[in-house]
Design a protein around this nucleic acid. Structure first.
Lengths: 173, 173, 173, 173
DNA sequence: CATGAATGAGCCTTCATTCAT
DNA sequence: TATGAATGAAGGCTCATTCAT
């Protein structure tokens, strides 16, 4: 709380005027970050009709966005634990939310015949995990040797192929 | 520490007879779990020559092992944070270690021409993340609706296809 | 810490707002006491030119000051041990400091021919020890039967004669 | 207790077979040391009839004895605090005991006219303090630069003169 | 709205002591 | 007699939270 107060150019008591407790600060930060990212993903998705292009755009958006906010990524990944039940629940909801977006897209792709039927829940979880791990390792590495965006192409190819989509189709980069 | 002492049928001081401090308990638990799992993976790998079969066996081993130790999985995933620098470093080493195993297998598969050249580091990270997320969500779910082993087939297909291996080859299950 | 907090009309945490740790409290108390006493001794010394009168005044000052602060004397003498390296070092420095003051005065007296040459270090240590023991026994006695100031005359005579100064010269009392 | 057990070539429990508790060990050590020193002092005293020679012999005995047992001196002076009420009481008794010996000798010297009447209690306390401080500083110094016995001559002169005895009479050294 | 001194529950750890073997 | 694993009271300290100003 001291560090937060200092960083906010205010006092410990001042922080408590705006937030009821420490956990609420992180929940607010998590929600704001989530909303912004969700909105950006939504915009990326709505810019394309082709399912593969949609997934591609969303993936690229996520990676580019995080690459510009490494601090927040680290904060939520490192300080998020031990904050209490509410934060954990919210974090679960967030992860489930992103997985749900992925799952919806996959199911739509199945419906339109772009990809063969799959267990969309497990697939979405795996995709989310793959993306999340790549970002996490980048965020937590002491000196981010490789740019996050450099991993985009590889990750794109992996995810597409994993559901049987030919990776040679052009990606965003 | 009270909870650990109670669960161990001993007293707070009794725990400190066996471990120098709280962090050491978790590090020991992490190391033992890691060693056992690494050994099992090694055995699975050495039971096969075919790269795909090797990966398949390793994946199945990991999922089956975790499915039998949900408690430990939860413990390390939930209590592991905020334990101090040493535990975090060790946890990083563990993740890196598992990723390295995957990476090694991938590079071997590339070398033998089973799969096309890929960025093995990103691929290994993504695979690890996918597997880790599936296990984590299973471990943290309130009432494990689906058995972890049910997800094996789907995950196997996803990972294989992601590097261009035909999924119709028979898996372990 | 509980006792200190209670006595200070505050809480355990409240004490830690003002001091970084327990040891620091005693070091601060020791330093403040030392500074005050040193200042008083300095004033007593500078009020006289005659070496004997100077020593006399300093001795009287010390005994009168302690006679008014028996609690602090007891506290520092009884609670001071087992507080850690820093406190012990500081306490040593304090003792050495007072001995140094005595030694300086003795050497000056030798230089001006008031007393014959002596081993000033051992003499200063012995003087300090004599004074310290008289004060300590008074401070630690259950019911201080005799006033500390009653011992002044005897101690004065002993110390003066010990370096060959005629004790029949009038003291402060 | 661990250190004591190790040093005694036994175990923690083994120590408790011989002593009821930690404090008792130090009390026993204190008493044995006290008895031995008291006996040696008694022997030194009974070897002479002349009061000055008696005091001289006792002083020399004390300093020589301690110079050979620096470890015990340090132990009792450093570990003695915080051992509980019983040890403190016993330590007080020991100090009082030695002071009483000194006081008795002084009173005898007064009675026989060797020295003029003095406040024997304060004088004995001061003598004890002087001797104690010289020994303590020697014992606690990191690297005992000067032998304790080197201080004997100076201390002897100081104490003798403090009660009006001509110091030019030959000492034991 | 802001401040920061104060609060106190709770944490990890120590260590003299006990006791079954 | 000896062992050493176990005990648990007590200690110092942290930090999210409160509240008078």
């Amino acid at each position: 709380m001291d560090a937060i107060a200092d960083e906010s150019q205010t006092s410990r008591g001042g922080v408590y005027f705006h937030f009821p407790n420490r956990e609420a600060i992180f929940i607010a930060l998590l929600n704001r970050t989530t909303q912004r990212l969700t909105r950006k993903i939504g915009e990326a998705l709505s810019s394309h009709d082709d399912p593969v292009a949609r997934a591609d755009a969303a993936l690229y958006t996520v990676m580019r966005t995080f690459s510009r906010h490494r601090g927040i990524a680290r904060l939520l990944m490192m300080e998020g634990h031990g904050l209490g039940r509410d934060f954990s629940l919210q974090m679960d909801r967030v992860r489930a939310g992103f997985s749900a977006i992925i799952q919806r897209e996959i199911e739509e792709a199945v419906r339109t015949g772009i990809i063969e039927p799959v267990d969309s829940e497990v697939t979405a979880t795996a995709w989310f995990g793959a993306l999340n791990e790549v970002i996490t390792r980048w965020a937590l590495s002491k000196d981010s040797p490789r740019s996050l965006e450099e991993s985009y192409a590889t990750l794109r190819t992996l995810l597409m192929r994993s559901v049987g989509v030919d990776s040679r189709r052009d990606g965003l980069r």
